[in-house]
């Protein structure tokens, strides 16, 4: 069993909200990712059993959506929007600056597992571009200076809390 009884209760509560078990699939995948940082094979099997669906269906669905991770990623996932409004506002400069500062290219994770940098499509923050989403929080109207300050804060915070469990 990949989850504690407390964690299992979270899954069961989510399932109870829907008229059909399978409808809770996306929600269950979110819970699993919140607990483990990514969706493990054991979690996929657990969810398949809970929702009474084949494990292959779970994999088919989770690979369709861009936000589910099937491997560990950095503690801080920096996702920079590069779609039109943000591009007009200078998103490419922000991405280059991040790549330089982190020493990685978009799509990669830093060696210390602290940062993963990803280019993403429109995050509905078009009026406040360029912008990025770090884990779940939006950071808007970005400048290179703001990026520097953000990275410093995250590095301090990351060091204080240790690596992601």
């Amino acid at each position: 069993m990949p989850f504690t009884s407390e964690q299992q209760t979270r899954f069961e509560k989510a399932v109870a909200k829907y008229p059909h078990k399978q409808a809770a699939l996306l929600t269950c995948l979110w819970i699993a990712q919140e607990i483990d940082g990514y969706i493990t094979t054991a979690a996929m099997e657990y969810i398949a059993q809970l929702l009474e669906i084949p494990p292959s269906h779970v994999i088919s669905v989770l690979t369709f959506y861009s936000m589910y991770q099937t491997e560990p990623i950095g503690k801080y996932h920096i996702q920079v929007c590069h779609t039109l409004s943000c591009a007009l506002a200078g998103a490419e400069k922000i991405i280059s600056h991040l790549e330089n500062r982190l020493g990685i290219e978009a799509g990669e994770t830093t060696e210390d597992q602290l940062f993963t940098l990803t280019r993403v499509e429109c995050l509905a923050s078009c009026g406040t571009g360029p912008m990025c989403q770090v884990n779940r929080s939006f950071h808007e109207n970005l400048t290179p200076e703001k990026i520097d300050a953000l990275l410093d804060t995250l590095k301090k915070e990351g060091a204080a809390h240790g690596p992601q469990s």
Partner: peptide
Amino acid sequence: HRGAGAYICGEETALLESLEGKRG
């Protein structure tokens, strides 16, 4: 109900599929 990153799920029938626990 929280989606998981797919523009197509704004199309109403894709949204329904997604809500049913399927690909959008």
